[in-house]
Design a protein around this nucleic acid. Structure first.
Lengths: 228, 228
DNA sequence: GTTAATTAATAGTAAAACTATCATTTATGA
DNA sequence: TCATAAATGATAGTTTTACTATTAATTAAC
């Protein structure tokens, strides 16, 4: 699977960038080091000036690829969810049993990225940390409705929709498949965050992953039989 | 209940502010209009200069109460969760049946604030909108561990802990009471957000509230009998 | 009614978040 | 391979943010 995924280009909505960073060497360096720098100093402290310095390039050059750092964050989250979607599709397409399929899907979307799969220039481990710590800032803005209309969050919504459909396949009587699917995706990021920072309010830790918690949750809610 | 709650002072960790805004008229005006202004223009666009102008006062005066706008946000979220905690305690303390108690607690923490209860100078409807849209920014920072050690998030964690304990009372065999409690509190905010902005990925709407979804979820997970 | 505390007004700084211009390097294709 | 276009780099400049410092004016307290 790793090899198959290696050569896939994750496609991101063209409106998010001014110039496709995948189209040039500089663009790739910008994305590569933006990920490392945001992970290192946090999104609030991240600036294009610092990024320019880090890649031995210029602030103004970065501005030719992304309007501002918010758009860059939207780009990174969109890329991440697109990448997760590929993993999900690959990991589940050969599974015919709906229950097994759903559980595998949950495993994929709730799992944290442990080692860099070297998908081109992108460090997925660092990117995953950014998604946990920063991604909600990409939509928690006053511009969310305009940007949503422009399609900035399509990949994310499509991923949630895929899980919703799998839930419905398992139990068509369940009344809240969409809410459950969005709770799993958002909730997993939240559990990952609090297991690292607010340990007292979660049961997740090194041994019990958010995956285990959410699979158990879904098994209970949808009345999946034990021997799946 | 409304009258009882009216005279309670929600206490916020002293380290969060430089000078207690509840102690002076100006302080109250700062908090009152900060809530309205952040709700209006969003946290990113909010500045102490704009707030000073709005209250006919000075930027420098605001700085005497709060170090910066981040601390002000921490203050507001802490106040909100303290206020919610009072509601939860009042609404549940007379209920002896653990299952009914838990469901009432979930109702309280997942419900959106529909009308201003006029708790002194604070507009709870606007504040609730801020909690939905901005509150996660208060802990999604590089300083989260330091600030957590200083007790900035104690009220929030205590509220989650109360729900965790209620869950355990209902079903002591359930393995993830903490994760479930935190999922409910965080997940409810998320459902409120997406029902307003990403309608395609939720089943919540004007008729189906996040409360209904989460109560059903908990009933299923903890095997609560129907006639509660 | 004096003194202390609080608030208001003003000014100033450093950095962020850009925009604009022009020089230089690199790529393309006739 | 030379000319031209495109991309990048360097520099400078603007506005706004996020403060700090100082002093003046109010208000409160004893």
């Amino acid at each position: 699977m790793k090899n198959l995924l290696k050569d896939i280009k994750v496609s991101v909505n063209e409106k998010i960038y001014l110039k496709d960073p995948e189209s040039t060497e500089l663009g790739k360096r910008i994305v590569e080091h933006a990920i490392l720098l945001i992970d290192e100093i946090g999104f609030e402290n991240f600036t294009f000036k610092k990024l320019g310095k880090k890649i031995g390039s210029n602030e103004s050059s970065v501005y030719r690829y992304f309007e501002n750092k918010h758009k860059l964050l939207v780009y990174l989250t969109s890329w991440y969810w697109g990448w997760k979607e590929y993993h999900l599709v690959f990991a589940t397409h050969s599974i015919t049993d709906p229950e097994k399929r759903l559980l595998k899907a949950i495993e994929v979307v709730t799992a944290s990225v442990e080692k860099d799969e070297s998908f081109s220039h992108i460090n997925e481990v660092a990117l995953n940390k950014i998604i946990i710590n920063e991604s909600s800032k990409s939509f928690l803005t006053k511009e969310v409705d305009t940007e949503n209309r422009e399609g900035y969050f399509l990949v994310y919504k499509r991923l949630v929709t895929r899980i919703r459909e799998m839930i419905t396949k398992v139990n068509s009587d369940y009344a809240f498949p969409g809410s459950l699917a969005s709770t799993i995706v958002d909730g997993a990021l939240h559990q990952h965050f609090i297991k690292d920072h607010f340990t007292s309010i979660t049961d997740c830790n090194e041994k019990v992953s958010p995956s285990i918690y959410f699979k158990d949750l879904v098994i209970n809610i949808l009345n999946i039989k034990e021997n799946v």
